[in-house]
Simulated scan of single mutants.
Amino acid sequence: MTTPHTGTPERSLVDRALSVLSAFDRQNRTLTLSDISRRSGLPLATTHRIVNRLLSWGALERSDEGSYSIGLRLWETGTLAPRCSPLAEAALPHLMELRARTSAGALLMIRDGLDGVCLAFAVHGPNLPVGRAESGDRMPLHACAAGLVLLAHADEAVQNQVCEGPLRAYTPATPVHGAALRQALAKVRREGYAVAHRTLEPDCASLAFPVRGAGRAVVAAVAVMAPADTFQPAKLAPLVSAAADAVSQQARSATSRPRTAL
């Protein structure tokens, strides 16, 4: 189907609904109807119809003031993603123990395309000065230790796509040249872990080890993030390695466990 007078394809209902949902992000959790229309690029009347449909299903919720936010039913559906929920549940106790033993923020990350996605995060306290993340946050693969671990074990095509850039400089220490990044990835594969110092935030450092699933394939990374001035990789490495190994063991057990017949 084409739009009148233009001959350009009309966006499908699914595309338009996804545009409405994509209007929400970490910085825009609550939006008015006009906000959604502007951010999705849809006419206000079209936005209104789609929002009402999503509202009736539970994908959106409406406040007493008339603004909209992501609905609980959509969140419930998202937790069914097979790469997310079981792995995060298996990792959380180990992340909490790692946090307690290191006084650093501990996280679990997987790769989604060219981004890292934080599945679970255990923070040492409410006022952690650096490296604060939330479940669902996306992080650059080239600028943090967990991302380097995931990228180092990704397919060659993915590595080439990232290394050929452009690579964003988050701080002066961020690797922005493909050759330097390739050397860093080779070091990760050789040493078995990654360290990133002031590459994502100027006052933050991180260290990560891989989580291995069936067939020893790297499926995630466990990392700690702490203030760069007091960061001690030699002391942190055995603790992070033990946590990653524990998560790996549970991940492999979960995939090999037979399902109970209903």
Rank of each mutant, 00 (worst) to 15 (best):
G125Y: 10
G125H: 13
G125P: 11
G125Q: 12
P126E: 07
P126C: 05
L128A: 15
P129H: 01
V130G: 06
V130T: 08
R132H: 10
E134H: 13
S135T: 11
S135E: 07
S135Q: 10
S135H: 11
S135D: 08
G136F: 05
R138A: 10
R138D: 09
R138G: 09
M139V: 14
M139C: 12
M139S: 12
P140D: 11
P140C: 09
L141R: 01
H142N: 09
C144V: 15
C144T: 15
A145S: 12
A145K: 03
A145R: 04
A146F: 04
A146V: 05
A146G: 14
G147W: 00
G147K: 02
L148A: 03
V149F: 08
V149W: 05
V149P: 04
L150V: 03
L150Q: 02
A152R: 01
A152H: 04
H153Q: 08
H153S: 05
H153D: 04
A154K: 00
D155Y: 06
D155V: 06
A157K: 02
V158N: 02
V158D: 01
Q159D: 05
Q159E: 08
Q159K: 04
Q159V: 06
Q159W: 03
N160Y: 09
N160D: 14
N160P: 03
N160F: 08
Q161R: 09
Q161C: 04
V162Y: 00
V162S: 00
V162H: 02
E164A: 07
G165V: 05
G165D: 10
G165M: 09
G165Y: 06
P166V: 03
P166M: 00
L167K: 02
L167G: 01
L167N: 01
R168W: 00
R168C: 02
R168L: 01
R168A: 02
R168E: 02
A169L: 04
Y170I: 02
Y170M: 03
T171R: 00
P172C: 04
A173R: 15
A173S: 14
A173G: 10
P175L: 06
P175Q: 08
P175A: 07
V176N: 03
V176I: 11
H177A: 15
H177R: 15
G178A: 09
G178P: 07
A179N: 12
A179L: 10
A180E: 15
R182C: 12
A184Y: 12
A184L: 14
A184D: 07
A184R: 15
A184K: 14
A186K: 14
A186H: 14
A186I: 11
A186W: 14
K187G: 13
K187F: 11
V188Q: 03
R189L: 14
R190M: 12
R190P: 05
E191A: 12
E191D: 15
E191S: 11
G192L: 09
